[in-house]
């Protein structure tokens, strides 16, 4: 059995009386794409916020590369190699694509108290940044301001920023959200290229993408896990089918 990179045990989070994460257990194997699916309100984004450190957990434990990270802050988790993207595109609008990614490189390489030298001419930043942009196919758009890019491009830019921090694991919160079919296909091919080089936890509503990319799928309903398995196992699971009853995406 492959090594577990991210181990979540008995994780809980409630908002008022609502259990958004209900005693969740989850293990993600190194190099795999592990998808988490579930109907709206199942607690998927809450889970990513807990994993990335934006939300503190009420109970349970998160281990990343065998280190207990449950109580660590978001920046420290990011430095340890746990990168994420956001469901609502989260880039720096007034910066160019290259500047956006350079900033992410800078976060990783650790020298941000340089107060004098021009960061935009710093090859140690722009070099790796351009590499990350090339991976997502945005190298020709490097000097365009992020706010002027198309929605799909900004989603790609977000992936490039996450990659530029040299992550050991990516937490992707609906990378295909709001995309047209063409942009979605492009994202699927970017993610399948990444497969194996970096471990990915993928939250996604696009079932076509999930079933073609994922090695393993966990189904969440009301914050709790109802099934985990290979795409084939999940497809055949009657409980999952009833949770998704009437969801035509799932039939396909």
């Amino acid at each position: 059995m492959a090594e577990i990179v991210l181990q979540v045990s008995d994780l809980c989070k409630s908002f008022g009386g609502v259990l958004a994460t209900d005693h969740l257990d989850l293990g993600v194997e190194r190099g795999s794409i592990h998808a988490v699916i579930g109907p709206n309100g199942a607690g998927k984004t809450t889970l990513i916020n807990q994993l990335s450190g934006l939300l503190t957990s009420d109970g349970g434990k998160i281990q990343f590369n065998r280190n207990d990270i449950t109580k660590l802050s978001a920046p420290i988790r990011a430095k340890m190699g746990l990168a994420r993207t956001f469901q609502i595109t989260s880039v720096f609008g007034e910066f160019t694509a290259l500047e956006n990614v350079s900033l992410a490189v800078q976060a990783h390489d650790g020298h941000s108290f340089k107060l004098w030298h021009d960061a935009r001419r710093d090859k140690a930043l722009t070099g790796p940044a351009l590499e990350a942009l090339t991976i997502v196919g945005l190298e020709k758009r490097q000097s365009i301001k992020a706010s002027l890019m198309s929605h799909g491009e900004r989603r790609q830019l977000e992936i490039a920023m996450a990659l530029a921090t040299k992550p050991k694991m990516l937490l992707l919160d609906e990378p295909m959200a709001g995309m047209g079919p063409e942009e979605s296909n492009r994202m699927v091919s970017i993610l399948s290229e990444l497969k194996g080089t970096v471990t990915i936890l993928l939250i996604e509503h696009d079932m076509g993408a999930v079933f073609s990319l994922a090695d393993k799928i966990t189904v969440l309903v009301y914050g709790g896990e109802i099934a985990t398995g290979t795409p084939d196992q999940i497809r055949a699971n009657p409980e999952v089918r009833s949770a998704y009853l009437g969801d035509e995406d799932f039939e396909s």
Binding site: S52, G53, L54, S73, A74, P75, I76, A78, K79, A83, R84, F86, S90, V91, F92, G93, E94, F95, L103, A104, A107, H108, S112, M161, A162, T165
Partner: peptide, 14 residues
Amino acid sequence: RSNETRMKTIGFPT
């Protein structure tokens, strides 16, 4: 200034 949350999640203790 632009997005503090994003800065934290790429690893900056802002």
